[in-house]
Write a protein that binds this DNA or RNA. Sequence first.
DNA 1: AATATCCGCAACCGCTCCGAC
DNA 2: CGTCGGAGCGGTTGCGGATAT
Length: 320
Amino acid sequence: MGRPPCCDKSNVKRGLWTPEEDAKILAYVVNHGTGNWTLVPKKAGLNRCGKSCRLRWTNYLRPDLKHDGFTPQEEELIINLHGAIGSRWSIIAKRLPGRTDNDVKNYWNTKLRKKLMKMGIDPVTHKPVSQVLSDLGSISGLPNTTTNQISTVEHTQEGQVPSWEHHIPYQVIINSENIQSHVLSEAASSTSSSSSSNITQLGSPQSYSCQTPQAQIAPPCSSFDWSEFLQSDSFNWSLNPSSGIIQSEAELSNNAKSNGNDMQGGASEGSGSGAVACGASMEYQINKQCEAHSFVDGILDRDSEIRAAFPELLDASFDC
DNA sequence: AATATCCGCAACCGCTCCGAC
DNA sequence: CGTCGGAGCGGTTGCGGATAT
């Protein structure tokens, strides 16, 4: 036996909302606030499901919502966050003032996903499509693929790092996997009793600087709470509502404090120190170090370099 | 001008989470 | 500890406007 429906669907109105209905919800919320949504339709005089009322309020009527188009900064933040945490729209939306999870989700599905695909980037993994195909080939037992071959090269040329590793601004994946690694590291250190961790530890902080991330990253442990992580100091990107610039919370706070002081080169210019701390400031440093290139350019550059370096390998993976 | 197709967005659905009891 | 029910989330659908043919 399943759960009973939240309301009698045959007796409630569905579909688009009329201005009159909107006015009723607004009037109700102004007078009573948002509380028990199941009671709202009755109290507000609406023949709607309570759930539908809540959705209408949170996605459309809330006074703090923005109804204009997404800015390039918001777009970049969405892509970065999606690369880091996937389709956790509500968490992503919390980083975008005035946007709802539905807005972000729709924008991703209708614009950003297609945009990335057009650029040859897989919107799920945020990796070049060619690399994803290569990885698929390797999973399905096809001959060694680009990725595998590269790791072979790295091993045979001990101590040498392929040239593309030195400077490629591969923002999305760096963000994504560094964050996951950081999370995993935190999880490992916080659970002192669990020594049997399968966590892949990354190297020292200086090794993060604009390098291609480690290939094998263990999935996050199931008990991990992304929401908590994103709200913690460990992960603190956000969009400055006034400047439209993606900043760390610390910088947002500093900017607020130092209003009127010398700006030292603008909002995105911070410490200037070479030291890269762990956690979010590290992510942010990476972003800053890499900002000469867009993340898309970085991915495509890397893809091109791989193709140029190992032209025969991609073809091989398609020889079925 | 009429029709077909595409696209964006609002809304719905089914599920999980979580607190109250 | 188990159950119930409200809230919230992510995926999907369907409508209406825009654009192409």
